[in-house]
Amino acid sequence: MFFEGAEKRIEIVVDEFTSNLRELGDLFWKTALAKAGASVLSTTSNDCCDAYVLSESSLFVWKNKILLITCGNTSLIDTSVQILESVGVNHLKWFSYQRKSELYAHLQTSRFEDDVIRLKQYIDGHAYRVGHLDGHHHYLFYSEPLPSLQRFSALQMYHIKGGLADYLLSEQQHKSHILTQLQLDSLLPQFKFDDWLFSPCGYSINGIYQDDYITMHITPQEPTSYVSIETNLADIQRVFNIFSFMLNIFNPGSWDVIGFNAHLPAGGMGSSVPLAQCRLALNNKDNLYITQYRELACEQLAPVELLL
Results as ranks from 00 to 15, higher is better:
129 R>Q: 07
232 N>T: 10
239 V>H: 05
69 I>A: 12
21 L>F: 03
89 V>D: 06
308 L>P: 14
248 N>S: 12
10 I>R: 10
94 W>T: 05
95 F>L: 08
7 E>R: 11
308 L>C: 13
39 S>P: 03
68 L>C: 00
250 F>G: 09
36 A>Q: 08
270 G>Q: 05
36 A>H: 02
8 K>I: 06
141 F>A: 03
117 I>G: 02
196 W>H: 15
105 A>D: 14
163 G>P: 03
278 C>D: 14
78 D>E: 12
240 F>H: 07
180 T>Q: 15
81 V>R: 04
2 F>G: 09
137 H>D: 03
283 N>I: 01
260 F>W: 14
305 E>R: 05
82 Q>I: 00
261 N>W: 01
223 P>M: 00
276 A>C: 06
184 L>M: 11
260 F>I: 04
202 G>F: 11
90 N>M: 09
9 R>W: 12
86 S>F: 04
201 C>L: 10
293 Y>V: 00
42 S>T: 00
148 S>M: 00
258 I>C: 09
162 G>F: 06
143 S>A: 12
282 L>K: 02
65 K>Y: 07
171 E>Q: 13
261 N>K: 05
265 P>F: 01
71 C>H: 11
117 I>E: 08
284 N>L: 03
77 I>W: 06
172 Q>K: 15
189 P>F: 06
278 C>F: 12
206 N>M: 00
92 L>K: 07
138 H>D: 11
21 L>R: 05
172 Q>C: 14
240 F>P: 08
294 R>N: 11
157 M>Y: 07
237 Q>V: 00
11 E>P: 00
33 L>R: 14
151 R>P: 05
23 E>V: 02
129 R>A: 01
224 T>S: 13
86 S>N: 14
236 I>S: 14
308 L>T: 00
226 Y>L: 03
118 R>W: 04
206 N>A: 05
143 S>L: 04
113 E>H: 09
2 F>H: 12
129 R>G: 06
303 P>G: 04
152 F>I: 04
131 G>N: 11
161 K>A: 09
42 S>Q: 12
163 G>W: 02
219 T>P: 07
260 F>M: 03
158 Y>V: 02
12 I>T: 09
281 A>E: 14
232 N>E: 00
162 G>A: 01
306 L>Q: 08
38 A>Y: 07
254 S>P: 04
98 Q>V: 08
124 D>C: 12
197 L>W: 03
131 G>Q: 12
249 I>A: 03
150 Q>H: 10
76 L>I: 09
63 K>V: 03
108 Q>I: 08
282 L>E: 01
220 P>Y: 09
106 H>K: 15
256 D>A: 09
166 D>W: 11
306 L>I: 09
94 W>Q: 05
97 Y>C: 08
117 I>Y: 06
116 V>Y: 04
213 Y>W: 10
161 K>C: 04
110 S>Y: 09
